[in-house]
Design a binder for these strands. Sequence first.
RNA 1: CGGGGAGUGGCGCAGUCUGGUAGCGCACCCGGCUGGGGGCCGGGCGGUCGCAGGUUCAAAUCCUGUCUCCCCGACCA
Length: 575
Amino acid sequence: MTRLSQYLLPTEKQAPADAEAISHKLMVRAGLIRQIGAGMWTWLPAGWRVHERVVQIIREEMDAIGGLEMLMPVLQPAELWRRTGRYEIEELFKLDDRKGSELVLALTHEEVVTTHVAQIVRSYRDLPLILYHVQVKERDEARPRAGVLRTREFIMEDSYSFDRDAEGLDERYGLHVGAYDRVMQRSGLRFYRVESDVGMMGGLGAHEYMAPCPAGENEVVLAEGYSANVEVASADPQPVALPPAPGTPETVGTPGISTCAEVAELLELPLGATLKSYAAVVGEESGDGRFVLVLLRGDHSVNEVKLDNALGARSRPARPEEVQAALGPPGFIGPVGAGGEVEILLDAGATLRAEGGGYVTGANRADEHLRGVVPGRDFPFREVDVRGVLAGDTIEGAAITIEPAIEVGNIFKLGTRYSEPLGARYLDESGVERPIWMGSYGIGPARIVAAAVEQFADEHGISWPKALAPFAVHLVALGKPGTPERDAAERLYETLTEGGLDVLYDDRDLAPGEKFADAELLGCPLRLTVGKRSLESGEVEVQVRRGRREAPGLSLAAEPSELVRAVDELWQSLP
RNA sequence: CGGGGAGUGGCGCAGUCUGGUAGCGCACCCGGCUGGGGGCCGGGCGGUCGCAGGUUCAAAUCCUGUCUCCCCGACCA
C-alpha cells in the first residue's frame, strides 16, 4: 500500500543553496535523504528503499559465492586496534565508557572478524571461509562532502576471506571479482574495475570499482584493454625533441630563473627538454630518513603515490634547507656531481626518448644550469616510474583518457597483515602452524545510489536504473477525487499491486503539473497516467522515464492479469 | 589543517553598510474557483534573526567571544 497521500515524500522545488553535486541536489529535492549534521544523513522512506535494493543485490551475489552473512558490532575495544597498529589513524573515532575503558567506533571490521577467526578456526579443514556483513561504518572524515558521497557515518557491505595460502586467497579474490562485477552490472551502473594502490600496509594486490561521473573524487585512466586509478597508472609520454648534446655538459647562466618553464623559455627549448629535480626525504617513519633526488621531464610531475611505491616507503618533499645542505641552492639543483650519498632516480618518461640528445638541468650552483646533460653518461641513476600520467599519453599506441569517478567498491589482498598481529593461525595437514591468508572487500551502497543518480539524471530529475528504483511504477491519477477517472486509477492501482508490482500511487489532490514534476523528479522507470483522456480513449498513458519517451498505451478494458503482464513486460525491457 | 563563504518561519532569500514596526516568494492551514505540465482569488498560522556576553534609551543591524554548516585545497588504512 503506497499511496502518496499517506506517504512521506518531501519533495522540494529548490535545491539546498549549498548543494553542489547533482546527486546531492536531486536526492534532497526528491525527498530521499535529509541532512542532520556534517556528514550525517537520514535516509527517508523512498531513499531507504533504493538503498536496500542495492543491499539486496549484494546479498544475493555474496551468498552465491558462498559468503556467510553475519553482524559485528560498531563499538569495539581500543585494544584490538592497538594490536594492529591502527589506533593512531586520525579518522578513527575514539571514546571512553563510564568506567574509563577505551573504545573505538569501527571504520572497518578487520580487527573483529580476524579475532573471531583466530579463536574459532584451528584446522586447515575449517578453511576457506568468506564472512560478510552489512554494517555501519564511522569515520571522522576531514571533510565530508556532496550529500551521501562522502559521509562520516555510512553503511558498507564488507566481506573478509580466509585461506590456507596465497593460492587460496587468489581464488577467493577471483570469486569476489565475479560477485562484485555482477553487483555493478545488475545495479545498472556504468563502471570500471581498475588497478589501485595497495597502500603502505603492504597489500598484495587491489582493485577498485569506479563509477564515472562528474562529482567523482577519483580519476581513472582508460585505454583499450587498460584501466587504472590515476594514482598507480602508467603510460608512455608524448615524445619530445631533445637538442643534440655536446661531449660534456655546458654551463649556461640563468640568473634568477629557476622553474623549468622559465628555463625552457629562456633557452628556447620545449619544456620536455628540461629535467625537473624533485628532492624528497624518504623513510622517516621507520627511523632514518634518506635524501633522494627524483628527475622527471620538465613537462611531467611527480605522482607521490607512485613514488612511495617505487621507494617502498613513505616520502615527503625535502625542505629548502635540506636541499641546500645536500645539493645546492633550491631552484638550481640537478643530478650532475650530486655525490655518492644522494640516490638519483630517473623517471622512465625521461629515459624513453633520451637517445641522441641532452637535457637541461640545474647546476647545483646559484643562477646556473647545465645543458646537454645525458643520463647515464653524466650521472648514474636508477630508473623508476613515478610520474603522473597526462591526457594525451599513450598505451600501446592508443591515447589514454582520464575521467573523474566515484569509488563504489574495492577489493584487496591483505595477505597476513591482520592474521599475524591478531594470531589467526591454523594447523596444516602435516601439523605445522601457519598464518591465515586474508582478503577484504567492500561496497558502499550509498555511493552506488548516488552514482546512479549522477549518471542518469536529466534536467527533470532522477532516472533510476530499474534495479534500483524505489518503485517500478509511478501511477498518476488526475482529476478531482471522486470522479470516474479517479475510480479508474484506483482500480488500476489495485490491479497492479495485486499483480505483484511495486506501485507508487499519486492520489493527492494536486494540479497535474505538480504530480508530473514530482514523478519525474523521483525517477521511477515507468509513469502511468489516468485522467479524463484515458476514459475517452480507453487507454492508460505510459511514459518511460529514461528519455521521457511515450510508450504505447494500455487498454483499461484488458483483463487484470493481462494488464499486469503488459506492464511487467515493459518494465523488464528497461535498462 | 590552510583558503573562501553562510547562519533571519519548512525551503529559497531581502533587511545588517547608515541601530528605531522583522519582510518577500514558495510551501502550509481555511473558503471558493480550476482540473493534462509546479493554476487563480480571498483570508490565515508560523520566526529565541545560530549561541553567549558587551555597547546603547533602543541591537537582526555595532563590538568581543563561541558554535554550526557549505565550497576549494590538503587528507582519505
